[in-house]
């Protein structure tokens, strides 16, 4: 795909909405288009966290396998969401499985490339962090609600 097309889809993804043009140029350099058929894994727990996925289409289940319980899905993400934050900090290992529930199209950002550009240009780094932290916070909040098990059976 031409770089021009890639630039457009990166610009259009909600994660990078309103990104400064000079930053856009930098991050597009780390981006490529990827596609996963239904049932395939974007990544597996323990594997090297070398990508940030910006989902453009299709749903991804984030799963943790538990002995005796199989894979437990704790969250599904879809179009407009991101998958994976473990690329951001050492040891750069995935903490869970990301499983395509249907055909998934995404932008994969090369993590080393993105980290290097963020390190080189703290302005870009700060901007990316400001986009990531609210998502992390929302997910933390959602996790809190799940942990509370609000629909669970109350103690009798």
């Amino acid at each position: 795909m031409a770089v021009e097309g890639l630039e457009r889809i990166v610009r259009e993804h909600p994660f990078f909405a309103g990104l400064d043009e000079s930053f856009l140029e930098l991050v597009v350099g780390c981006a490529r288009n990827v596609r996963f058929e239904a049932g395939k894994y974007l990544f597996r727990e323990g594997g090297p966290a070398d990508q940030l996925y910006l989902v453009r289409e299709g749903r991804v289940a984030l799963e943790i396998a538990a002995p005796g319980a199989g894979a437990i899905t704790f969250q599904t993400v879809a179009e407009g969401d991101i998958v994976g934050v473990s690329w951001l900090f050492p040891p750069y290992r995935w903490q869970y499985d990301a499983h395509a529930l249907e055909r998934v199209r995404a932008i994969a950002m090369d993590a080393t490339c993105l980290r290097n550009k963020c390190d080189a240009d703290p302005g870009l780094g700060y901007d990316v962090m400001k986009r990531l932290v609210p998502i992390l916070y929302q997910r933390l909040q959602a996790t809190r609600l799940q942990v509370l098990d609000v629909y669970g059976k109350p103690a009798a």
Partner: peptide, 23 residues
Amino acid sequence: VTVDHAADDWHGHVGVVTTLLPR
């Protein structure tokens, strides 16, 4: 419809109900 957690035979949404609002 979304659920708080599911086994891998569930192909629907997983997550709190508020995450469905943008959809």
